[in-house]
Amino acid sequence: TIVPARRGTAEVGKLWLRWKGPLGLAWRQIQKQSAQSVAVIPNISAVRSPTIQMFLKDSLFGLLARKFRGEGSEFEALAEYRPGMDRRSIDWKGSARHSKLLAKEYDTERNNQIVFALDCGSSMCEPIDGLPRIDRAVSAALLTAYISLKAGDRSSLFSFAAKPELSTPFLSGSRNFFRLQQEAATIDYRHQESNYTLALSTLQGRLRRRSLIIIFTDFTDPTAAELMLEAAGRLIDKHLVLFVVLEDRELTELITKSPESAEDVARAVTAQNLLDQKKLVVTKLKHMGIDVIEGAHQDIGTRLINGYLNIKRRGQL
C-alpha cells in the first residue's frame, strides 16, 4: 500500500517486478525504467458527507426538458398564492386587480460561470495543521465545484504565482468533476511572490461574460496586498468577486499564549501586527463591495458553499 505524502503528479521512475516459480521455491526479479506518472488527487471525502448528499437530493436533474422554478431573478409567471410560499413574492398590485392573492414565480438561474482562482505562491505554501494552505484551498474549491456542477453551472480552475499557471476550460455536468480533480492535481507549490496584477488581468482578458470569481489567497505583504486591491477593483466592474481567506491558528496561538520570556512578547507583538494588517485588507475589500469568507480550514468548504448558494439565491449573477 502506497500512501502519498502530498498532492501533485508523482513520477514513476523505476519498476521492480518479482514473481515466484511454479513450485514456489524461487523467484525471479527484474528492474525496468518507467516514464509513467500518477496524479495524486486532492482529498474530496467531504463530497460524500451526509450533509452534502442531503443537499444533492434536491439538486439532481432528470432527462425531461422543463423549467426549473425557484428563487431566481428572472420573472416567469404569476401564480395563486398558497400557504408555505414566501410572502415577499406576493404581487400586491396584481392581487388587487384580480381580487385574490398572486405570487411571482421566477426561473432558477443555470449555466453561470464560476472561476476558482487559486494563489499557489509562497504565502499559500505555509502549512496549516500539517497540510499547505493551497491544499486546503483546493479541497474547498473542489467541494464547491461539485455543488456548482450539480446545480447546472459551469466551473473552471485557475492558478497563479509569479505568473498564471493553470487555466482549464469551463466544464459543465457532474460527469466532468473527475477532470477537475485531475487538473487540480497539477497545481504545484511555488515558492514565489504572487503577481496579482498579471494574474487577475490575464483572467479578466479570458472571460467573455459576467462570472463569479472565487479567489483563494492570503495577505502577508502590505505592498502585494495593495496591488491585489487595485487588480480586484478592476474585476468588480464586470464580474462578481469573492475572496476566501483561511484563519491562521498559529498566529492566534502566539497572541493568546502567556509569555514566559522577552522573545515570546516579541512574537506576540509581531503576530498581532500581521493579523491587524490582514484585517485591514479584509476591511478594504468589504468597503469595495467584495464579499470575504474567513474561517478555519475544516469549516471553509461549508462556508463557501453557503456563500455560493446565497449568491444564486439573490440572483447576483
Rank of each mutant, 00 (worst) to 15 (best):
V3A: 04
P4L: 11
T9A: 08
V12K: 00
V12R: 02
R18A: 14
G21K: 06
Q29K: 10
Q31V: 15
Q33G: 12
S34T: 10
Q36A: 15
S37Q: 15
I41F: 04
N43K: 11
A46F: 05
A46G: 01
R48I: 03
S49V: 05
S49H: 06
Q53D: 04
D58M: 10
F61G: 06
G62L: 07
E71Q: 14
S73Y: 06
S73C: 01
F75M: 11
F75H: 11
L78E: 07
R87F: 13
R88M: 07
D91I: 03
W92H: 11
W92D: 05
K93L: 13
S95E: 11
R97M: 09
S99D: 11
D107Y: 02
N111I: 04
F116H: 01
L118D: 06
G121Q: 05
S122L: 15
S123V: 08
E126W: 10
L131A: 14
P132C: 13
I134D: 00
D135R: 03
R136P: 05
R136G: 09
S139Q: 12
L143A: 01
G152T: 05
R154N: 11
S159F: 02
K163D: 08
F170M: 02
L171Y: 15
G173Y: 03
S174T: 10
F178K: 13
R179A: 05
Q182Y: 02
T186I: 06
D188Y: 06
Y189S: 11
H191D: 09
Q192M: 09
S194W: 04
L198Q: 12
L200K: 05
L200S: 09
S201D: 13
T202V: 06
R210G: 00
S211H: 00
T217E: 08
T217F: 10
D218A: 15
T220F: 07
L229R: 08
G233Q: 08
L235K: 09
D237E: 12
K238V: 11
H239E: 08
L246A: 04
E250W: 06
I255C: 01
T256W: 05
K257T: 12
A262R: 14
A266L: 15
R267I: 03
T270F: 14
T270E: 12
A271K: 09
N273D: 10
L274H: 09
D276T: 15
K278Y: 00
K278G: 03
V282D: 04
L285I: 01
H287S: 07
H287V: 05
G289T: 09
I290T: 03
D291A: 14
V292I: 07
G295V: 00
I300V: 13
T302C: 01
Y308T: 03
N310W: 02
I311G: 07
G315C: 05
